[in-house]
């Protein structure tokens, strides 16, 4: 499983736990897993890794039961939590909240009911609710990308930015990116929301191409958006003048990096597999009895032609 590459801290614990032995208990535990439904590629990956992890953990630890629920909106996700506590009698909850602000108080209720709570990826609006926080590194994604841009443009360049949705994650990434390029000669011609999706990436890029005769590079922030942007660039026959960086580590993008594409020179990971890490760590709390507390940040690695093979998982949907 690829998330193991990502989390050095957890790796040691995982290795320990994989020898069931002494800590294995007879008592059964139920872990509830609540994730957003697959409304785009990245959440599709989240669902995939959640299912994969649950399947493999169930095999390894027969005394663990899992309840997986996917929700399309915060209301549904909140109801899912109530059901898990009321009817499935869970011992722990692993949740990737679709809208962390809206879900803070439902999660607090789960916590108050005495359950172990692991929050994934998105910070709740109240500190100290969760026992365990497993998150991607959003500022890191922006910073890593920004540093790469600076290294490619020592003498300056014209770039455009395709942002995601107007939510905090996007802002953290963009702020860090801007900070990283602040002292360079890079000029951001324009930035516009493309909603982390292909069709909008295509449309916005088409318009940027008609607006600016000279663009050197695009930061699309997301690999889906990048695919749309690349289609627009190819349509305008400017694929030899512009390169594109997406983000999040979609397998098609990584494949291109691996093949040495000039158009897509690198990618920056933001691994949906972090949900698997979170489930695994939560399972370990029950199997090992070790105290399991604090924050685990899954860093956003720079994926280049040299290391791309490591991140390439052809079987994953993402």
């Amino acid at each position: 499983m690829r998330f193991r590459h990502m989390l050095m801290a957890a790796a040691a614990v995982t290795a320990m736990a994989l020898s069931p032995s002494a800590f294995a208990q007879d008592k059964t535990y139920t872990i509830g897993v609540s994730v957003p439904s697959a409304d785009h590629g990245w959440t599709g990956g989240v669902d995939y890794f959640a299912q994969q992890t649950i399947a493999s953990l169930s095999k390894t630890y027969p005394n663990l039961k899992f309840v997986l629920a996917t929700a399309g909106d915060p209301g549904k996700q909140a109801s899912d939590l109530e059901d898990m506590v009321a009817t499935r009698n869970i011992d722990a909850l692993v949740i990737l909240p679709g809208d962390p602000d809206a879900l803070t108080s439902p999660i607090m209720r789960v916590k108050k009911a005495g359950k172990f709570v692991t929050v994934v990826d998105r910070k709740l609006s109240q500190p100290g609710v969760e026992d365990l926080y497993v998150a991607g590194d959003n500022p890191g994604l922006g910073r890593t990308t920004g540093e790469y841009f600076v290294s490619r443009f020592p003498d300056g360049g014209n770039i455009v930015v395709l942002r995601g949705l107007p939510i905090p994650i996007d802002k953290e990434r963009v702020d860090a990116f801007n900070q990283a390029i602040a002292n360079s000669k890079i000029k951001v011609l324009a930035s516009q929301f493309a909603n982390w999706n292909r069709d909008d990436g295509f449309k916005v890029m088409q318009d940027f191409l008609s607006r600016f005769p000279k663009i050197d590079a695009v930061w699309a922030q997301d690999d889906d958006t990048a695919i749309g942007a690349i289609a627009a660039i190819k349509q305008a026959h400017r694929e030899n003048q512009i390169w594109v960086v997406g983000g999040a580590g979609m397998k098609q993008a990584i494949k291109q990096v691996m093949d040495g594409s000039k158009l897509v020179p690198i990618d920056v990971g933001y691994d949906p597999g972090m949900v698997g890490t979170a489930i695994e760590l939560t399972a370990l709390k029950f199997e090992t009895g070790l105290p399991m507390r604090g924050s685990f940040i899954v860093r956003s690695p720079l994926i280049t032609q040299a290391n791309a093979a490591e991140y390439y998982h052809p079987d994953s949907p993402y």
Partner: peptide, 12 residues
């Protein structure tokens, strides 16, 4: 034929 793909975000 535009992007050669379909996903759950298509046509939202």
């Amino acid at each position: 034929p535009r992007l050669g793909s379909a996903s759950s975000t298509t046509g939202v």
